[in-house]
Design a protein around this nucleic acid. Sequence first.
RNA 1: GCACCGUUGGUCCAGUGGUAGGACAUUAGCUUCCCAAGCUAAUAGCCCGGGUUCGAUUCCCGGACGGUGCACCA
Length: 594
Amino acid sequence: MAADDLVELAKRRGFFFGSNGAYGGTAGFYTFGPQGAALKRNLEDAWRDRFTIREGNREIEAPTVMPEPVFEASGHLEGFDDMLVECGECGESHRADHLVEAVTEIEDAEALPGDEVEGLIADNEIACPSCGTPLAGESVEDFNLMFATDIGPGDAQPGYLRPETAQGIFVEFPRLKEYARGNLPFGITQIGAAYRNEISPRGGLLRLREFTQAELEQFIDPEADEPPLDRVRDVEVRLYPATEQEADDGEYVETTVGEAVDEGVIGSPWVGYYLGVAKEWYERVGVDLDRFRFRQHLAGERAHYAADCWDAESEVDGDWIEIAGFSYRSDYDLSKHGEHGDGAFTVFKRYDEPKTVERAAVDPDMSVLGPEFGGDAAAVAEALEALAERDPDAFDAETVSVDVNGETRDVDVDVAGFAIEETTESGEHITPHVVEPSFGVGRTVQTLLAHAYREDEVDGEARTYLSVEPEIAPQDAAVFPLVTNDDRLVDLADRVASDLRAAGLAVAYDDSGSIGRRYRRQDEVGTPFCVTVDRDGIEGDAPDTVTVRERDSAAQVRLPADELAAELAALRAGESFDVLLDRYETVETDVETN
RNA sequence: GCACCGUUGGUCCAGUGGUAGGACAUUAGCUUCCCAAGCUAAUAGCCCGGGUUCGAUUCCCGGACGGUGCACCA
């Protein structure tokens, strides 16, 4: 299939199109039309069902605008901010800060203003690494991939549109852990928009400036928590490990989740677990598994804190695109926010048995130390405390000596209040580790459409259709009167359509043009079932019956109108059309598909 | 951001220094008992700004958007 065909279909049938066309268009922004929005929402619902509901996790919704300090902590402020200088001669772009750092003593050139870096390039006669042309006079461009904004009027505080949804979960961890009643493991999900001011957005939905992410942050105790790996142990996966990517004749490793984890191909059992869950989910929503793989990040590709990282990739138009990332992020995120923020980004981990520890402690009598040592009294007390911990035996004598401010101070042991205390510790504060499956929703939509796109022939006439799963299809069904010159057919079709809608099904009604044309319209947007009211359905042997046509095969069955809603709901939930073919009268249509 | 190419009804294309034509789609009517049928009619377009010109959709410049390559993609 040519990529152009899908783009044309997407525009014509209302899946997605470039935004703000009336104002010339805006690069990097796409609007999902009626069909696309419905499909995307169904996909999100399927994700929510699998990664939130079925995992027993909880979903939150955080703001898209966050204040600057959040991104100082997360590293995005620095990591997303690049200083580029372009060579006027050969056109290569280079990191200006790196060039300056290479030839000067300056270690953090990125923190300098752009014009100062321009000056440094001129003063140090820095030349283009690619072609050797002096870069003096070239302007240093500041690229921050985050959209900046102001929060509030006047002396507003700087804020940014979030470049990933994850931070909205991390920053609220101190509160979210309360809702989990302090127990690990627990998972928080979020589906929402993220923003990156891409230099050069391209490729339709593949690289946008505003896009939708579905993310799960699984918080675990790295020493105690194990994933329920047995649930996915036998799931078959196609892996593309780093070692194979680096080999000259690298090959896929076809294995199971269990084996891959056992053999250490997948480093973290948690990552392995979610790869298995994701594989089954992708199959459920209609990704073609022949055009799907898990690719491990190469060492250089990986963030320094990530122990192991895998991407889910799908093949679209011959290119492999990243549609999800699975990373073991250790305690990086929560530790960073713990350092920068005020809350407690830890949980209290209770020991199996409370530990009784003997500790040497002092309880100095300050009413004696104060008059005796004056301003040094507090320092003496502190020194006594340190000594008790370091060398309890020092308190065996009648007096004990400590050095404070270069002077030796003698204190009566009685005054120091030395004692061996037994204390009970019932646990410790630990920073949870994070396992993060992060899905790109728009890219998954693109994948589903590309993988569902089909061309075949029905009765010798070419047709285009989308073989999307009923759960994901924008519309559950369409209802037609076979012909419109008989009010009885139109009336029954009207009634059937409104009954189905009342039952919660998304139903299109169409009485325009020939029946074949109407089938083709629905085929093109992936409607899985078409309900047609014909004359046999209102008179003769089978009153109040309708026919249901399955999209891919064009096979039809006749069933009572009042059983329709329940059957369509079952089909949407995953029941095979073959069940209906067995249960009801098959309609002979002489229609051939191939 | 750089370079090259492009932008004409909803979609896909043709064409022109004197404001445009087709196909498909859409709408209405006729016809029509199962897969883009037929007939009649209708709706609908030269990306934006500036320049040259009596006159620009057409030529020139700039911009926006799109495609491709480079760069970028924590």
